[in-house]
Structure formats: structure tokens, C-alpha cells
Design a protein around this nucleic acid. Structure first.
Lengths: 208, 208
DNA sequence: CGATTGCCTTGACTTATGTCAAGAAGGGGT
DNA sequence: ACCCCTTCTTGACATAAGTCAAGGCAATCG
């Protein structure tokens, strides 16, 4: 850790500020110290697909360090954030001398690959209601509450994370409420029927 | 390389044979020596989303080695194939003593992360015609022919790779032919209008 | 306290793509 | 050469989800 700190450079960004754009050349990567960073892709028409939100302790923009290509997506702060920047060559040297660091890095990349396989599966094989159900179930686990969860992002951003648009998401929230699966109150979602949600998430059918 | 060979175990599989299933525990990974391996996810209803095709020299199933979780997808031989299997612990030991090996592995994982970001972008932000146009353009580059490409997989499998179904793909081939963008003859596709294809791939609009 | 702004919801409509069903075309094997 | 079996194509239809437009709600700021 001391060695790592030595090569790091601070960077602070405000909400809405861009860290890097897709296609930018990369001469290093960042680790989030505080705040939240959104990684996303944009279409020509302006539609956004969010790939990740990253918080404290997570590295961002590490892919081009090893693949030697430009950044594959955009990174933007969704809140005032504090980052550490690590220059590429210094980090490569560090990893070369430090097997456990490289194994950690391999583990991180592997986990992200796994997340992407899930995201691709969701986009391609599931419809939006199933994706939302699966997200809510995941949130409940992460927040360690079986019965109610709090959205950490706006519904518009959630739509973009799930690969849809706010209108569609809103309608599905309404439908789930109709079916007594959930209750929505602003950013607080009460999971009235967690089993039903899991069923919906697995087989795409609203339970009868 | 000698050290690597030492810990490898041969495995031969026939066309259609499964190497591993999603969810299987993993005690090592494979490298393709010859043949082609399909990596895919299946929905409950049986729809398939293909994630990759891997050929000679490419590792498969390496994600769980580092993330310590089960395989995230299925692997199946689409042709008679020859693989090398590397037990997990032996490989981890090897990588620990061998920085350049770990850097290579990091580079491979990074490239795959990048490919996945493109696949997610395609699924979420582009419609099927644009995905097909982009695939054909990519094939032309890979095969280093500007004017005609040969599909290396069946059209049904291509549909699954693009996140759609054979019927839809077939209709889009027909439409592209109508618009004089391509000419289809079995597995041979003549790119009548490569510029038009790129345009379609970028902005999703059939050129006028 | 009212107004401005951004975010969310709802409605009417359009469209891309999936479903189901039938037929055509191609490729191997006997 | 024939037949079988898989793959591909085409048509008619259903539907999930996007587009466009209007209005509501809530938070923030002067």
C-alpha cells in the first residue's frame, strides 16, 4: 500500500464533471476515494447506457492500462468525488514486482467480466420487468433488507442502467404496484412480495 | 512456455460436446489448441445469447480462476476441438512467479472487457440492422477483404450472437439486399456498398 | 411564499422485433 | 440420384417497448 500511495496523484471533481471520455488516450487509471463515478456509453442520438457505478475503493479506467487502447467508455462524477490517479508505467512496474497485486487486479477484472456477462444476458434474454425485478432483488441483498430498499440513483439513471427509458420504467413500476409486488414512495421501494419478484426476474412472467 | 506446458492436460472434444456449463465449479481453465468453442448463455425459454467464439490460442473459462466463483456461461465445441486444461492452483503459482505472464493475462482480460462494452452498447443502443452492418464491417476488416466476406458460422448462430432470432436476421439480410448494400449467396456476402454499411452501423439509418 | 427547474408520470400512438406456422433450399449419407 | 434432416426464408400476426406531448409533483432559490 505504501508503494502504491507513492505513485498516486490526487484529483477532485465536482458533480457532473467528466473524468474521461470514450476514445480518450489513457496514460493511467483512477481509484475512487470518495463519491460515485458513472461509467457509460452514449449513442449518436444521445441515449445513454450505463455500464457501472463505482464507489470508494474501486478502480476505474484500468482496462486501457493493460490493453493499450483508448478508454472504452465515458466516466462522469455523479457526486462531488475524490480520486487518486496512477500513471500507467509506474503502476505496471509496481505490478511486475508484486505478484499479489497482480492477482488482485486479475480478480477485479474477472469479477467485472462476470458482471458484464450478466448484463448482456439481461439485455438480450430478459424483458424490462424481469431486469427491474432482478435489480430490486439485488438491491435488497446488498442493503441487507428483505422488505424495503432505497434507490441510490435517480429513476432516470436507473432506466439507463437497465437499458431502457424513464417512461417505460415508470410504467413498469406502476404495473408492479398494481400486482402488489412492490410499493413505491419516492426513492423508497417496499418489496411487498419478494418471492414474486424473484419469480418475475427468473422467468419473465408476472406471477399469477 | 515450457513451464506452462508442464502443467497442462490434453482434452479432445467432438462437435456439439459441452466443455462446461454455467454454474459448474471451476478447478482450472482451458486454452484452445484447435477447433472453435462457443461461449453462451441460455434463457429458461431456451433462447441463446452467444458471448464469444474462441479459436486456437485463446483461453476460455479463465474468469473463475481469479474470481473464485463458478463458470458464468456455457462452453460448447462447435467443431471437433483440441484443448489444454490448466489446473487452477498450478496456474496461480505459475503466475505468481512470472510477472510477464500475469501482465499478458491482464491484457487478455482487459481486451475482453472492452469487447463486452461494445456488445452491451450494441444490444442496448443499436437496432439489429446496425448490429449486423457493424458485424459485416468487422468481418471485412478481419478477413482483410474490402468487398466480400465469408460467414464462419451459420446464420442461426449469427442471429444469436447479434442478440436476435433467425427470422429477424433473415429479413434484415433481405432488406439490405433490397437497398443494394450487400448480396447474399449462402455464406458468402458481397459488400456492394461498404460506406453505406458503415453509415448504417453508426447511425442506425439505412442510407438514402 | 411563489416561482422556477428538473424529474417523474401518464396517455395516445408508432414501430421494431418476436411468435407461430408453413414451405423452400441445401448438404450428406446411403 | 434420392431422401432425409437441418437450416433458411417468408408470411401473417402479436406485443414489448420506444416516441412525442402534456401535465403533475417536489425540491430549491430568490
Amino acid at each position: 500500500m505504501q508503494d502504491i500511495r507513492k505513485i498516486g496523484v490526487e484529483r477532485k471533481v465536482n458533480k457532473g464533471e467528466t473524468i474521461f471520455f470514450e476514445g480518450d488516450d489513457c496514460n493511467g487509471f483512477y481509484v475512487v476515494v470518495s463519491g460515485t463515478i458513472k461509467i457509460s456509453k452514449l449513442s449518436l442520438e444521445g441515449k445513454e447506457q450505463i455500464l457501472h457505478f463505482f464507489g470508494p475503493g474501486e478502480p476505474i479506467g484500468e482496462v486501457p492500462v493493460f490493453s493499450g487502447q483508448p478508454f472504452p467508455a465515458n466516466a462522469e462524477a455523479v457526486a462531488k468525488s475524490h480520486l487518486m490517479f496512477f500513471p500507467r508505467q509506474a503502476f505496471v512496474d509496481l505490478i511486475t514486482d508484486n505478484p499479489s497485486l497482480s492477482l488482485n487486479m486479475l480478480a477485479i477484472l474477472s469479477k467485472r467480466l462476470r458482471q458484464f456477462t450478466v448484463q448482456i444476458e439481461n439485455l438480450s434474454l430478459k424483458e424490462v420487468p424481469a431486469r427491474l425485478a432482478s435489480y430490486l432483488t439485488y438491491l435488497a441483498e446488498e442493503q441487507e433488507k428483505a422488505d424495503a430498499v432505497t434507490l441510490t440513483i435517480s429513476k432516470g439513471q436507473l432506466a439507463s442502467l437497465l437499458g431502457t427509458i424513464p417512461e417505460t420504467l415508470s410504467r413498469i413500476f406502476a404495473k408492479m404496484t398494481d400486482q402488489n409486488l412492490i410499493k413505491v414512495n419516492g426513492k423508497t421501494i417496499t418489496l411487498t412480495d419478494p418471492m414474486g419478484l424473484e419469480e418475475l426476474s427468473d422467468n419473465g412472467q408476472f406471477p399469477s
